[in-house]
Amino acid sequence: MSLLQIDRISKTFGGVQAVKEVSFELPAGQLLALLGPNGAGKSTCFNMLNGQTRPDSGSVRFDGRDITGMRPRAIWRLGVGRTFQISATFASMSVLENVQMALLSRERKLFQLWRPAACFYRDEAMQLLGQVGMAAQAQRSCAVLAYGDVKRVELAIALANRPRLLLMDEPTAGMAPGERNALMALVKQLVVEHQLAVLFTEHSMDVVFAFADRMIVLARGELIAEGDGDAIRRHPRVQEVYLGSGKSFETQPDVNAGGGAA
């Protein structure tokens, strides 16, 4: 049984069908890319998976459990992590302190501290930073880091909850080509070594075809293709609406809880 099972989820906003009966599965140990042009429904789909948006119909199952419509915090505690297109770290804190805060949250001790937060979970935080190649910068402020390094810190924060499923929304947005490849190579390594299941959205096709094990493609809220890189490259509808000129495809806004397009 796959770790994540999506069965015919749909969502409409004000008469706009953002997602229409999308179904797919994601097993442990696989890196799955969710693709589509702007307005395809990617963000709405993502938000339904982690509880930010409730589907109008269909179901989301994680490890056999129906999590449809559960609150994001409850889904996070079940082992579903998420990173965002705009990195969410505490700029005024050190790299180490950012990860320590995530560990305190996991253990529900944010409001039960009798000692400074920096005293807690230091070794585990350093271990997580070692996994993402940031241990040497543990004492630096996040405010002075290069953008690619901030993304690595965000990944360590996401891993602090020991997720089995990781949702990554545009993980390489704003990064230089070398940074993009280095980050996704790291994610791929974590997938293999820890049997993580990772679902990610991405506009950089070089990253997608270099690292994704499988891809699914949305257009106007519908799933139009699924397969490995060769199958996606050859798919005539994908060539029409995404990889080719796209002249026959008219995008529409992906209206979602955050108000942005996807």
Score class of each variant (00 low, 15 high):
I6W: 05
I6R: 02
D7C: 14
D7Y: 13
K11T: 02
T12G: 04
E21V: 13
E21F: 08
V22W: 06
E25P: 08
L26S: 07
L35Y: 09
P55Q: 07
S57Q: 13
R61W: 05
I67R: 01
T68K: 12
G69W: 11
G69L: 11
R71C: 03
R73G: 06
L78I: 09
V80M: 03
R82M: 08
F84T: 08
I86Y: 14
S87P: 15
A88L: 15
T89L: 15
A102Q: 12
L103H: 01
L103I: 07
E107R: 15
K109W: 12
F120Q: 05
E124L: 02
A125T: 05
L129D: 03
Q137T: 14
L145A: 01
A146C: 07
Y147N: 09
G148L: 10
R152C: 03
E154Q: 06
R162Y: 08
A173E: 02
P177G: 09
L183V: 03
V191F: 02
V191N: 04
V192F: 12
Q195Y: 11
L199M: 07
E202W: 01
D206Y: 04
F209I: 09
F209V: 05
F209S: 11
R214G: 04
I216T: 01
I216S: 00
D228E: 13
G229S: 13
R233V: 12
R237L: 13
V255W: 05
G258Q: 07
